[in-house]
Simulated scan of single mutants.
Amino acid sequence: MGTTLFTSCSFSWRFHRQIIPSNHLLAQSSLESGISRAKVTADSGESELVGGEIGKCSGLMKRRSVLVSGVSLMSSAVLGSPREGLAVVKQGLLAGRIPGLSEPDEQGWRTYRRPDEKSGGHGVGWSPIIPYAFSVPQDWEEVPVSIADLGGTEIDLRFGSPKEGRLFVIVAPVLRFADDLGDNATIERIGPPEKVINAFGPEVIGENVEGKVLSMNVAEHLGRTYYQFELEPPHALITATAAGNRLYLFNVTASGLQWKRHYNDLKRIAESFRVI
């Protein structure tokens, strides 16, 4: 278990489809490995009379082709294995997301690990994001990230629970602090906890951190140092560390009622954050 140095603080900082023209359309569908695909093929030449009749019905056949495709897509989720079907539906809802949650453990907690295949470089010339991991109760789920979110494109991930609260991960370039940290920065080289929270407090919580820092921990896990802050109000638990040429900020927040009822879970989530 890592060693922990605790200091109470009160700081004052500022800081589709493509439609192919054809008069002779036949709709076919195939189911391969639980994935539905729609194919459109043109039949061979017919007599001029039959061609005329088919021409009159081409519009109807196009509509039926779209309908068949829709039914086939639904069938893939229903007829395929339950796990595959749910994966297709969830992936469609959160475009571009690669799920990274484990199965629940005996206590009902799941571990999220950032998939190696997940996109997102946060800047041209930056090295791939080093994976990170954390644990959440079973009802927490990943939610879409928008570039319009507080923190902009540097927000790499969001999770939420209607019952307990929300979290997000900011991955920012260390060049925002100094230009001589290289490609293997540590949180200690970036600066003391005061410097980190002063620079990122407004970005994380959306307002000045002056008078809001209730406590601060400095913890070490597997040779990596983590700064841990508790702010109020708003209720927030922030864990910060560095790896490669990036700074990682893990923020867990909740409403007043959620904070009161689920503080222990929120604290456990915040302290579980690790850069692998």
Score class of each variant (00 low, 15 high):
107 Q>F: 01
106 E>H: 04
54 I>V: 14
100 G>F: 02
86 L>S: 10
99 P>G: 11
53 E>T: 14
106 E>Y: 03
116 D>A: 12
102 S>Q: 00
111 T>G: 01
75 S>L: 11
87 A>E: 13
104 P>D: 02
77 A>R: 11
125 G>R: 02
125 G>T: 02
81 S>H: 02
57 C>P: 03
62 K>R: 15
67 L>D: 08
65 S>N: 11
73 L>G: 13
58 S>Q: 14
99 P>R: 10
77 A>E: 09
78 V>E: 08
109 W>N: 01
101 L>F: 12
89 V>A: 12
55 G>I: 08
126 W>H: 06
102 S>G: 01
110 R>K: 14
121 G>P: 00
62 K>C: 12
112 Y>L: 06
118 K>L: 09
90 K>S: 05
80 G>H: 09
76 S>E: 12
120 G>Q: 09
68 V>E: 14
105 D>C: 03
72 S>F: 06
91 Q>C: 06
98 I>V: 14
131 P>A: 05
131 P>C: 03
111 T>W: 00
96 G>P: 07
120 G>F: 08
88 V>Q: 15
99 P>W: 01
73 L>V: 11
74 M>E: 04
55 G>D: 14
65 S>T: 14
121 G>T: 09
134 F>P: 01
110 R>D: 00
127 S>A: 09
118 K>P: 00
106 E>R: 09
53 E>F: 15
75 S>C: 08
88 V>E: 13
108 G>A: 07
110 R>H: 01
122 H>G: 05
105 D>A: 02
116 D>I: 09
78 V>H: 10
105 D>Y: 01
89 V>S: 08
94 L>I: 14
82 P>A: 06
63 R>H: 07
86 L>H: 05
74 M>Y: 04
61 M>K: 05
113 R>S: 12
69 S>W: 05
81 S>M: 00
127 S>H: 02
127 S>D: 03
95 A>K: 15
53 E>A: 15
76 S>R: 10
114 R>I: 02
115 P>K: 11
131 P>I: 03
106 E>G: 05
110 R>V: 09
74 M>V: 05
91 Q>D: 04
77 A>N: 10
64 R>D: 13
78 V>D: 07
72 S>E: 11
95 A>L: 10
73 L>C: 11
75 S>Q: 09
93 L>M: 09
103 E>S: 05
80 G>T: 13
121 G>F: 04
109 W>A: 00
66 V>E: 10
110 R>G: 00
120 G>S: 07
116 D>H: 06
124 V>S: 08
106 E>S: 11
66 V>W: 06
59 G>I: 05
123 G>W: 03
76 S>Y: 03
58 S>R: 11
125 G>Y: 00
76 S>T: 08
